[in-house]
Design a protein around this nucleic acid. Structure first.
Lengths: 125, 125
DNA sequence: CTTGACCTTCACATCAATGTGAGGGTTCGA
DNA sequence: TCGAACCCTCACATTGATGTGAAGGTCAAG
């Protein structure tokens, strides 16, 4: 498929698909006329990228961890340098931290909402 | 305490403390000479803000949910407009989504690391 | 052959979170 | 009274993720 279809199917502006490519997050083949061509796998990949971005990870980190997140559970080890592993561990811990924090705050917000609803119910009763 | 101490105790650049104030996330009293003064509660508050920022929430949303996250479990209801409640619900759901996504990916990264370690152990054995 | 819907690159704009520094007051101790 | 260590505001710079548009190539259908 070309960029327009991928854009529609992932709900991602073309501009960003090009940007992700520029950042090395996705790769596109080219038709003889220069048009980008994508295969199915890119749909999932873009979704993954967007999710990670939305989760607050910067593209340069996403670039590092993406290869470890392949669907086929065949972990193909890229040049797994020690520093890269260190980065990954850091990032894993950062994610864990984030999850903890986010969960705490989500729960607080949720509790608040419940409390407000009760208040409202009591008030209107 | 003045801005310098708060900065040190929260590990946050002064610049950002002023920025958070500008964004309405924290409030500071002023000494007669114009210096900002903070009390203890601001230390936690800043930590909270930084955590939420790090979790990917923009300041304008943080501003909305902060009032619902007070330590003393006395939920004091601000002008809880219906739209604000709607925003909060949306944000709660967004956070939940984020947590889910983040968890999945964190686990994937973690698994990857374990696999690599095993590989390395096998190789060196 | 032209029109319209694609695609390309390039480049400038924006927004939020930050960095950085200029220019200038206050306070306190040597 | 001078210097160091604070504080202030103002304002421009930067970075990452985006928006937007110009100038132009490709291609299928009328």
């Amino acid at each position: 498929m070309r960029i327009g279809e991928l854009s529609e199917r992932t709900g991602t502006p073309r501009r960003l698909l090009r940007y992700y490519e520029e950042q090395g997050l996705i790769v596109a083949d080219r038709l003889p006329n220069g048009y980008r061509v994508y295969d199915e796998s890119n749909v999932d990949r873009v979704a993954q990228i967007r999710g990670l971005l939305d989760a607050g990870l910067p593209t340069r980190i996403i670039k590092q961890i993406l290869p470890c997140l392949n669907k086929p559970r065949i972990i193909h080890f890229p040049d797994a340098t020690p520093e890269m592993l260190a980065t990954l561990e850091e990032e894993r811990d950062r994610m864990t931290e984030r999850i903890r924090f986010l969960t705490r705050n989500r729960d607080a917000v949720a509790e608040y909402l419940v409390a407000v609803r009760e208040k409202l119910a009591a008030g209107s009763a």
